[in-house]
Amino acid sequence: MLNDEEVRAIAAEARLSLHGDELAKAVRYINNFLGMVDRFKELDLKDVPPFCFAESTECPLREDVAAPFPRVPDILAARSQSLDYAGAFRVPRIVEE
């Protein structure tokens, strides 16, 4: 069971702020969720390998060819107002806490 502070901290880690009854609802949700996944403890998973991929294929390898994306301006168009003079994306003040 997680308490309010713990859930608030996890939310903050996910860059989410919870206000008013959002926090209470989130605490209820998380604790129900953990209750649901606590069921795994009934199983002996010691020697069971983790499932990572449905098919036993190997990672395909791409040829090392430089082929520029033809529509770079379309990518930048999403932020045309806030790019700086050199074309870099703006971010607000970074404060190392």
Partner: peptide
């Protein structure tokens, strides 16, 4: 430290 904004490339 003290940067008012930053830019990403």
């Amino acid at each position: 430290e003290g940067a008012s904004s930053s830019f990403v490339d």
